[in-house]
Structures are given as structure tokens and as C-alpha cells.
Nucleic acid binder design. Sequence first.
RNA 1: GCGCUCGUAGCUCAGAUGGAUAGAGUGUUGGCCUCCGAAGCCAAAGGUCGUGGGUUCGACUCCCGCCGAGCGCGCCA
Length: 583
Amino acid sequence: MKQIINDLIAQALCALQQASQIPADLKIDIQVTPAKDASQGDFASNVALTLARTAGMAPRALAAAIVERLPADASVARVEVAGPGFINFFVTSGTSQAVLQRIREQGDRFGASEIGLGQKIQVEFVSANPTGPLHVGHGRGAALGATIANLLAFVGFEVQKEYYVNDAGRQMHILGTSVWLRYLELCGETVVFPGNGYQGDYIWDIAATLHRQNGERLRRSVEQVFSEVTADAPAGDKEKHIDDLIANAQKLLGTDDYRTVFDLATTTLVDVIRVDLEAFGVVFDRWFSERSLADEGLIEQAITRLQNNGHLYREGGALWFRSTAFGDEKDRVVKRDNGQTTYFASDIAYHMNKFDRGFDKVINIWGADHHGYIARVKASLNALGYQPDDLEIQLVQFANLFENGEKVSMSTRSGEFVTLRQLREDVGLDAARFFYVMRKAEQHMDFDLDLAREQSSDNPVYYLQYAHARICSVQRQCAEKGIVSDLENVQPARLDNAHEQALIKQLSLFPERVEVAALRREPHQVVNYLRELANLFHSWYNAHQFIVDDAELRDARITLALATGQVLRNGLGLMGVSAPDKM
RNA sequence: GCGCUCGUAGCUCAGAUGGAUAGAGUGUUGGCCUCCGAAGCCAAAGGUCGUGGGUUCGACUCCCGCCGAGCGCGCCA
């Protein structure tokens, strides 16, 4: 419908140009938006206002001229010039009611489109270090990423969801060593656990597995393990302390056995994370290992390419990438003076690999604390000859958890945090998913645990689910009363009151809102849309009886109710929230 | 100090590319169930859009300064 109006205006402007009433070289940009108020019709355009200056006409006069030249169209009932020069379009009721038939035909696919057809897009999200179970801080990225991926797939993109597993690097060595120390304790050694080690209970679980699988084979004496180790804080240096312990572990266990411990810790935690995410309704297409980048020589390959392109230089024994040449605020080290490549080097190789896999667009969903990396990663893509704009970083602000009106504080290292699993078991999957995507990603968000937990009208997710359950209930009522509806030959013209008109219009706007939400990566748009939809439905429900004696009217109303239920299902489905038949 | 993300009703938040009277939920106040689910509906009250300038027919939106919040500024990952 929007497109039709757009075309009509374009034709009118064209006619005006031919009549030389407006300049022929006028740059035309037509905007048509759904009207915000029924008194302003169904759609409105501000062309007359935007064009007024360059056309050299007063906005209202231009609007009138456009309206005069507007070709007739069966779907447009009436056109008005209003306010400072808006053109309001009133659509014929038959036209808007056609959406009911479309919803019936398309069902679960209503709202889907093909605007992304033929384009491969990757969404990488969560990608938390596998050093512990996911906590509530990861939940927002998980919910947003999954919903954005659903939206993109719904509008036709070929979407791949990826999790980047940071299975290399110091944090993982700390993890492995933490497990081994707990294992030694299980063997009967008395260990003073490092303050910087991972202290969560899950470390004990992995250590127990290690003990079960290897017996005492990996046991070493505490004297050996702690020999020549820098003292721990507060007297010593907690960083050096843990690094020394790692070095001793590698020396005492040897390459293969150290790897056994390390790999057990990693794979166990990746499994824990995967299971947690699946229970959260988030399934990844690929788990990409950071270690594989080095194993397959991709890091060296990336560095070589940068070198060949003349973007590297050596200074102080290290190899630097001149990222400042591409807008970064300082140059970055890719290979340290000890020969080890940096995390950033892995990142370069990883992103190079992403684009080499043929994605037209790559979306990274990052926590806001990583914003400092945007410039350097884009700089590296630039230097490698890729289009940096094809990488899109969606930052997600932290969600503060509130309980009893107080902020819940957390720390991964100390093992004091609310896990994603606990949250889900506490407030339920639907409320958890819904709350995370309710606000736009850039907005700092307060997650009210008490509210999410509440099974009452205060909880916004129930408002939508209740509307759906009510619709299903109407169906049940019909069945109980033995009413059989003829939905093939409904008379939508019978839906003529203001509530019904408003509801029908809202239903017709769903595809557009989905499109906007997908293209702008803004799931909260769907939430807001569904809230409006549910509100219109509830109002209608309260004002009118559906199951009436007049069969024709009854069928028409049931058709509208079912269409509303369908759209609620489709919208909630995109967010991974269920649409219950009863509650 | 520099950079990023923000600042909208008592509280939690919507308001894309500048457009009509700045909206919702919650809370407060007052109404609505002999009727398909009251986890609902209707109404009222509630705002110098952090602040001071600027750009123009028009600014919550764009530009500059200031105030406040969160987060970043390693040869860590």
C-alpha cells in the first residue's frame, strides 16, 4: 500500500514537472509513513514540506497542487491536505481488509519478505571465553543475537550464527591450571589456591572428571608445583604468581599431559555453554575455534598479507600494524618481541577468514566494553583490502540486574555470579528472552528480576501471551458451543467499527515493522509493535462480543481474532518467546 | 586527559533518515465483570526532552560548549 501511494505521488510530481509548475531537475525523495492518528487517515506524506524550498512554493500550495494531479486509484478513498502541508491518504476499507486473507494464506510466513534474498550474512555473538558457565551478563547478547538472526532470516537473508571460541591465550591457561590444582587437592595434596585462579564450583567438577579418567597419574607434589613461584597477593604479585604456576604445570606435566588437562577444561566448558544456550533457545550453526586459526596458519597468512601490503613495521623487537593509517588512535602490536602473536592478530585472521568465506555482511554483537576494538579491526580489514563497512559492530550495553530494588553485583573470577541457567530457571525462558530484547541494545538497561519473575499483569510478556491465550479461548468456546465458522467466505466489510479498523490497520503494518527491525538490527521494534497490537486487541475484545448470533458478523470477527493470534505468534516466535494456548 | 555509548513523566523505557498536540508501561486517582479469560478495558493527573548556545519555515532529532552516568584507552585475552 505504501508503495502504491509512493507511486501515485511520483506520478503527480512528474505531471507537475511536465506542466512546469515545479523545476524539472528537482531531486525527489518521497516519504510515506503510516499516520499516527485515525483522523489523519491511514498514510501520510511530507513531500510537500521537504520539497517546498527547492520547488519555490509554499508547502500547502505545493501539497494542493500534488493532490490535484494525483491519479485516481481504487485503493485510495480520500486525500486531504493537513497541517503545515502534509498529505493524508485514506485507504478504502476493502483494501485494508484484504490483509486478513493474506494472513490466513501465509500463516507462519506472514511478515516474511525477500529483501535479503541472495545475500549471505553472518551474525557472531556471545563468544564468551569458555572459562565458566554463561552468566546473566551474556544473556542480553545471546537474546539479541538470536532474535536479530531470526529477523534477518525472516526477511530473506541466508544467515549463519557463529560463536567464536577463545580457546587460546592466557585466560585458558589459568583455567587449565585451576582445574589441575583442584585435581591435586582431590588427590590429597594441600594446595593454597591462587587468588587469581578460577574458584567456581564447576572447576571442582572438571577436576573430578580428570581424576576419574586419569587416576593419580597426573599427581605431582605441591613442593614441585610451587617451587620457585612468585608469592601471591597481597605480599607478592598475583599475576606473576599464576603465570609461574602455569609454567610449572607445563614443565611438570609435559606437553601431552598438560594438553589433556587443558583440553578437558575447554571442551567441558564449551559443552556447558552450548547446553545452556540451547536451553535458552539459542542454537549456533558453527563454533569457531581461535586455536584453529594458528593451527591452520591463518594468523601467519594474515600477517604476511599485511606485510606485503606494507602496513607492518618493526619496533622494540615487536611487529606493529600501522592502524593509525586507517583512523585508529594508535598503532597495534601483532607479534610480540617474544615471538608470540597477540590476540589482535588472531582477530585479524578471524575476520579475514570470515570474509573469505563469502559473507556479504558480517555482524558482530559485542559487549560495550569492547568498543575500543572497533577501530583497529576495521583498520585491519581496510589494510587487507576488504570493505570495512561490510563489518558491522552492534554494541550491547550492560544490563544491570536488580533484585529487591538493589543492584546485584557479580564477578566471574570469584565465582560469584548469577548464571544464565539460574536466571532462566528463576524467571522462565519467555520472560528472560523477552526482557533482554525489550530495550534497544545501545540503551543501558535495568533488568528487574522481581518483575520478570512476577506472574502478573505487571509483567509485560504476559500481556502479549494473554492476548494470544484469549484468542485461543474464543476458539475453544466456539467448539464447545458447536459453532462452525465458514472462514472461506467471510464478509470483512462487516468489520466496520473503530476498534476493528484500527486492529486491521495494525495487522497490515507487521511486515514493514519486521523489515525495519531486521535492517536496523532492532528487535525492540517488534516488542513495541506487539504491545500495540495486543492493546488494540484487548480494547476490541472488551468493547465487542465475538460470539454473536449473526453468523456473518461472527465469522468476520473470528477471522480477525485468528489473524491477530497468527501475528502475535509470528512476532513472539521471532523473539524465541512462546505463544501459549492457555495460561 | 582522550574516545565510545547514553541522559525524555516519580520509576522503567519508545520516539530511523529534522515535521502535525513528545508517547507507552508501571505507579497515583476514579470508573467497567448477570456477557467469549479482569494477567483485561476506559478516563484523569503527571514533561523547561540534563544544561547553555547555534543552524531554519520547523530541533527530542543536526553542530559546538558545559554537567552527569556507564564503559574503554597493555608487546592482556
